[in-house]
């Protein structure tokens, strides 16, 4: 029966500890045991019964969302990362544009060509901006 206990422990591993978590864990453990015994009464080997109970358990995420452990954690991280990317792209493109303006003014002040690379570079922060907005 240790296998069941271990399995339940694994399932709840990344859920923050709380009284609620322990209660529901205990409940699930108890009911799974009961299921295993019942399956054994119906003539299954213990090993088979345990495996069946584990396979039929389903997806722990459903319980997680009820316990308030949404996947938001992951989303927050992704938004955070998108924000960093956006900042980087803004600073990066400003530097590139300034460099272009400088080269333009220094070597060929008579022809204004820096606008072309500027437009090309602007795609970078623009795409990062919309990615960030989509996640937000």
């Amino acid at each position: 029966m240790n296998k069941i206990k271990n399995h339940v422990d694994d399932l709840f591993e990344d859920i923050p500890k709380s009284e609620e978590r322990e209660t529901i864990k205990q409940e699930i453990y108890q009911n799974l045991e009961e299921k295993v015994y019942d399956l054994m009464v119906q003539g299954k080997e213990e090993e088979d019964a345990i495996n069946k109970a584990i396979v039929e358990f389903g997806n722990i995420d459903e319980i997680k969302s009820e316990l308030g452990v949404f996947s938001t954690n992951k989303d927050v991280k992704r938004i955070e990362r998108a924000k960093i990317d956006l900042n980087f792209s803004i600073w990066g493109s400003i530097l590139i544009i300034v460099l272009m303006v400088f080269i333009n003014m220094y070597y060929s002040p008579s022809t204004i060509w820096f606008v072309y690379p500027t437009f090309a570079v602007l795609w970078w922060p623009l795409s990062m901006f919309y990615r960030w907005r989509k996640l937000k």
Binding site: I24, I28, N31, F57, G58, D61, E62, I63, E66
Partner: peptide, 11 residues
């Protein structure tokens, strides 16, 4: 599925 069942209990 058990997972569903206990989620519903919680709710």
């Amino acid at each position: 599925k058990e997972a569903t069942l206990y989620a519903v209990f919680q709710r």
